[in-house]
């Protein structure tokens, strides 16, 4: 049985095992030897073309429980049986589609809301992901999104986008709102400010506001 360690794009170390003479004890031994290198890292075990049985899995989980210096994130596998077993035990598996997303800011589980009406004063729409509005957001209406907000119409109400994220944007065909919040960063505008083709974006510490010009050609 051979082992290979490699970094992954989710800032974790992946242990690739092969299926000849698969042995849990050997894995444990290997990890114990490399403990110093692996200390404090996110750790993933990739098991390909080998079906784990329950005792093997239990023994591995037990091992990681006793090794708190390694942050075990779960398994990666190409076999359905392994995945089902892991899920039964509550262990993340199939890293490529599950654990990865948790590490990324945006997950595929986020809903995307599509609204085909004008939001009037007192209306409130929220979504864990993006919101697309085919209509206006009138004064007194509120929009809250975990993702981006795109308004195919006029924005005069309050929009909070990118809640809990570090990246997000708000776009509207016309903008005349008192304030706007993206990723917890607040933008305020005075009453006379009007923008066409408005786009506000926050990415980390960068904040950009772009617009064409105001409807009556003033602020331009």
């Amino acid at each position: 049985m051979e082992f290979k360690l490699r970094g992954t794009n989710v800032i974790a170390i992946e242990l690739i095992t092969d299926n000849t003479n698969f042995s849990v004890e050997k894995i444990k031994q290997f990890i114990s030897e490399k403990k110093q290198i692996l200390k404090g890292t996110r750790f993933i075990i990739s098991v390909e073309n080998y079906t784990l049985n329950e005792t093997e899995l239990d023994s591995l989980i037990d091992f990681f429980r006793k090794t708190p210096e390694i942050f075990f994130c779960g398994f990666k596998t190409n076999l359905k049986e392994n995945r089902e077993l892991c899920i039964k035990k509550g262990i993340p598996c199939d890293i490529s589609s599950m654990e990865l997303e948790k590490i990324e800011e945006r997950s595929a589980a986020e809903e995307i809301k599509f609204i085909r009406k004008t939001l009037r004063s007192g209306d409130k729409i929220s979504s864990s992901g993006d919101i697309i509005i085919m209509g206006n957001v009138n004064p007194g209406a509120e929009v809250e999104a975990g993702g981006n907000v795109y308004i195919m119409g006029d924005l005069r109400g309050i929009v909070k986008a990118g809640i809990g994220k570090t990246e997000g944007e708000v776009r509207a065909l016309f903008f005349q709102a008192p304030r706007l919040e993206i990723c917890g960063k607040e933008f305020t505008f005075n009453r006379k400010e009007k923008y066409l083709n408005f786009k506000a974006k926050v990415k980390g510490i960068h904040q950009t506001i772009e617009y064409y010009k105001d409807r009556k050609g003033k602020n331009g």
Partner: peptide, 8 residues
């Protein structure tokens, strides 16, 4: 704004 609310 109030008229808008009422419309909604």
């Amino acid at each position: 704004r109030d008229a808008d609310r009422v419309t909604g």
